[in-house]
């Protein structure tokens, strides 16, 4: 590489130093190209679409012909009845995920890390990844089979439904329950993603200096003390980074899972910003209004990620940027 660069650089000495550097690292820049193009094409250029949120623009109608309405789409959204409901549902689902789901991959990673039998650890690791590759549609169908209610006394419902019915005597509607559905959604997430989420923490754990453990053992530290004083602080940066990133998606509930699990009984507690944007924008074609809702979501995400970052720095952690 160096020989090449010198050979190229010599005859073009007049050109600026920067150009020489670029020439020298041209393959590196070539590798950078797809990523840059990706961001320009899919993230930067579409930004002009924000203007859609200030028009009454429907799919298929000429964009230039659509009326400018200023912020009326936003005002309509904030003053609509749906806003409070959507905010409430989104926050409930998101908060449950942060409180109950977020710590699980960390705990699981720590547990896996403590296993000393290598083959057993590897096998377990692979097994917990598997659900991640199962499609949400399949998971929804499995859930229906396990939780469905019996249509009459002669027939039996799903296995878990029947079990609960035997224990407490009354059949509880999990799929139609306004509150119960939240736990179903949470459990689906945990089952599907907590194994996959361990990857990044296991990588962080692999980077912990072994000498620290050796020194601790010499000092007579127990397994638990090693965990608390060496392992946990070592991965704290990763945990904080993941948490900040998670805060950036506080209003992201995704719509695939929710739409699959939605029915007329639980709709008022499972409609979130994401499903709302999907229904109004993708299905009904009201692009102007749904873009306004989506933009609102992005702004809140930006605020959340910024404040989480500030908080982390304030608490003495490295932060993200």
């Amino acid at each position: 590489m160096a020989k090449n660069a010198a050979a190229v650089a010599a005859p073009t000495a007049k050109k600026s130093k920067k150009w020489v550097q670029i020439k020298r690292d041209k393959w590196m820049y070539a590798l950078l190209l797809p990523g840059t193009l990706y961001f320009i094409i899919f993230k930067i250029i579409p930004l002009w679409g924000i203007f859609i949120s200030m028009k009454t623009y429907y799919a298929g109608v000429d964009f230039m012909e659509a009326d400018w309405v200023g912020l009326s789409n936003f005002i309509k959204f904030f003053s609509s009845t749906s806003f409070i409901m959507l905010l409430k549902n989104t926050l409930i689902i998101s908060a449950m995920n942060i409180v109950f789901f977020f710590p699980l991959p960390i705990i699981l990673a720590l547990l896996l890390n403590e296993i000393r039998l290598q083959w057993y650890k590897k096998a377990l690791q692979t097994l917990v990844y598997v659900p991640h590759f199962v499609s949400m549609v399949v998971i929804a169908s499995i859930t229906f089979m396990l939780l469905k209610e019996s249509s009459n006394d002669a027939q039996s419902g799903g296995a878990i439904f029947e079990l609960v019915k035997r224990i407490n005597g009354t059949g509880e509607s999990w799929l139609g329950g306004k509150v119960a559905i939240y736990w179903v959604l949470l459990f689906q997430n945990i089952w599907k993603e907590s194994g996959w989420g361990t990857i990044i923490f296991l990588a962080a754990l692999a980077g912990v200096d072994v000498e620290q453990y050796e020194a601790a053992i010499v000092d007579g530290a127990s397994r638990l003390q090693q965990l608390i004083y060496i392992t946990v602080p070592a991965i704290m940066t990763t945990v904080v980074t993941m948490f900040i990133l998670r805060m950036g998606s506080v209003l992201d509930t995704g719509y695939e899972q929710l739409i699959l699990m939605q029915n007329s009984l639980n709709k008022s507690s499972t409609d979130t910003f994401d499903t709302y944007v999907y229904n109004i924008g993708r299905v009904d074609g009201n692009y102007g209004y749904s873009t306004a809702v989506g933009l609102f979501k992005s702004i809140v995400s930006l605020i959340c990620i910024q404040s989480a970052n500030r908080l982390a720095k304030h608490a003495g952690q490295a932060g993200l940027f």
């Binding site: 429907y58 799919a59 298929g60 109608v61 299905v283 009904d284 074609g285």
Partner: peptide, 29 residues
Amino acid sequence: GEKVTAALGANEYPNVMLVTARNSSIIQN
């Protein structure tokens, strides 16, 4: 419904298209 909206958004249509939902975007179009 989603497929119809996608066709409208992309401005790419078949010769004859079924419209099932009478929503605002269909009326505007």
